[in-house]
Design a protein around this nucleic acid. Sequence first.
DNA 1: GACCAGGTCCTTG
DNA 2: CAAGGACATGGT
Length: 211
Amino acid sequence: MSASSSTRIARVIRFLDKKYGKINWWHGTPDEVMIGAILTQQTRWENANKALMILKQRSLCSAHAIGEADSMTIESAIRCTGFYRIKAQRLKSLALHVKSVYGDTRIMAERPTHQLRESLLEVHGIGAETADSILCYGFHRQCFVIDAYTERICGCIGIKEKRQALKTLFEKVLPGDAAVYQDVHAHIVEYAKEFCAKKRCDECTLANLNG
DNA sequence: GACCAGGTCCTTG
DNA sequence: CAAGGACATGGT
């Protein structure tokens, strides 16, 4: 007799919280998080972060600066993240969107979560995961991020649903606190990188968690 | 050299 | 709707 999906997820969350505790995983201004979220698509965070540093050094780490810079300049700064041409375009699209819809990034913070999410999804190159990362880590909203690792971890405990369904499940289980959303997702990624790397979960023991 | 990395978009069947 | 390919550098 196995427990419900919600119960199993709650157990994993508690287990990981005990294991890792509170961690300061991804912080930054909304501009930095938006840019970083695009740079880290299908890319290790270390490389995305390296590009983020270069952008900062060159005063290009803001939606406004990206909007002003030419594409070649952006491409050369973010080359180490891979997919640099398409990512430069995505950053440009984001900058244009911020400018034309909001005028300034600060105005975005005044919008309700759902509206902001729909708006971000209009940007060519921002999909569900990138939008949710921006909302969760950049704007501190109660918006849970489902990425490849989360999907993998859920598979380990026998929950094989689509990403939207997983997101709904987690948001039902989690309390109303954005900081908790951030920590839980961070815990999952850290655990998965350690025990479910290379698309394998050989050392993952999450399936055996009991009450 | 092979394989993978905190996705997204486009095209096919 | 599912599956496959493109995008590209860097680490193991």
